[in-house]
């Protein structure tokens, strides 16, 4: 029991690997997204789909590496809150675009 505590404590004490990895990943994903767009070498559909997927990955990196979404005792509720938020957000955006399609 004690050992585990010490280990956990150390994980918080040493070099912030988690944050550095998070930063590198998010910079990389940003640059990939930019490259996909400015290279103009892909179809519009592919470009849009891939940058959206990259954005979702980036959001997950922030949530997990920087925001510690899954660390507290109420992690289930935190995940449900953020998950329901994303569900509603997706419904709002996709639904609105579909409904308003003929005025786009």
């Amino acid at each position: 029991m004690m050992n585990e505590n010490v280990e956990q404590h150390n994980a918080h004490g040493g070099f912030p690997w988690k944050h550095v990895i998070g930063l590198i990943l998010s910079l990389a994903l940003t640059l990939i997204a930019l490259w996909i767009v400015v290279s103009y070498s892909f179809s519009t559909t592919f470009t849009l789909a891939s940058i959206i997927i990259l954005a979702i990955f980036q959001a997950l990196i922030q949530l997990l590496f920087f925001m510690h979404l899954n660390e507290s005792k109420s992690r289930v509720w935190q995940i449900i809150a953020i998950g329901f938020g994303f569900f509603t957000a997706a419904t709002v955006v996709v639904g609105s675009l579909w409904i308003m399609a003929y005025s786009l």
Partner: peptide, 20 residues
């Protein structure tokens, strides 16, 4: 965290409006 869930929805409406 719950408030952030609400913020996600808030921004999603602005995104939806912008895209429309």
């Amino acid at each position: 965290w719950i408030f952030l869930g609400a913020e996600i929805v808030l921004f999603s409406c602005l995104f939806a409006t912008y895209l429309v």
